[in-house]
Amino acid sequence: MEFMSDIVSLLSATLRISTPLIFAAMAGLFAERSGVIDFGLEGKMLAAAFVAATGAYFLGSPWFGLILAIVCCVSLSLLHGFASVTHKGDQVVSCVAINILMIGLTTALAAAWFGEEGLTPTLNDDQRFFEINLPFADALRPIPILGTIYSDIISGHYIFVYIAYILVPIVYWVVFKTSFGLRLRAVGENPSAVDTAGIGVYATRYKALMINGVLVAFAGAYLSTAINANFFREMSAGRGYLALAALIFGKWHPKTALLACLLFGFTDALQIRLQGVELPIIGVIPVQFIQAIPYVLTVVLLAGFVGKAIAPRAIGQPYIKEG
């Protein structure tokens, strides 16, 4: 029976760990489908985590923290747009600037406001999100398999987790079944076609970037006001890059990007589970190796399997009118 409970906790952890990746990947999807590279998911996630924790601490509610994080991330996305859409700057450089700036700024502000290098005060229960037990979770638990899946794997997560999984079909619907989605995809493929159809290329890209800001804010807030009770230095820990990798691995499609996020989430859950565990024959693997698994997987997948991933054609290119 221990094996069963291992599986259950592994799957439950996968859902939990994948959540910020899903938010960030969906955020990245909007930006990149519109033709704007978003390498800055990492920095924005970090900023959102800091702002959400700080906001929740001062205002007493994690919801206020989340709202402030959204405002912060939308601003950063617009800044990225201002540099790379309006002023046609290099999109990667703009993203790198945001990432580096946010590492420094969050650390420095935390030191200035709370006296501790890169830490915000621990939030109390009112200031952070709590886990939700779904209705009848306890009652249904005895049912074999289905009950376990419902009560022990699906139930008992933060609200973010549920939002994330509802989000993916909504993103799919917006991108493929609405006129905004059509324009979004067109502007990332051939902005001239959009321009000659009388639609603003910049306006479409800015709209995409605003949605991007809102979604990535959820990823950051989840880190500092849900699964953790404070912000700490560089707490995004490469999740922004991982989400981008999942997006590329998922070929810029919501469904496959979700699967990629789950895969990364699963390997991360696995490495946590494997730490310190004695395996047959091999023995205990040093923790550093185990922790490297998700990142090694990212490199292998990106290098080996996505050779045929076709990026939006106009990605990374500022739109310049030609006659």
Binding site: K177, T178, S179, V194
Partner: peptide, 29 residues
Amino acid sequence: GMVHQHFMLVENFSVLENIILGFEGEIVF
């Protein structure tokens, strides 16, 4: 109407999608 020298078409879209682009007339198809 104008037919440009370099076609203003999105290559991985269908004919229909290219034509209605910008003139969808509704928010949800």
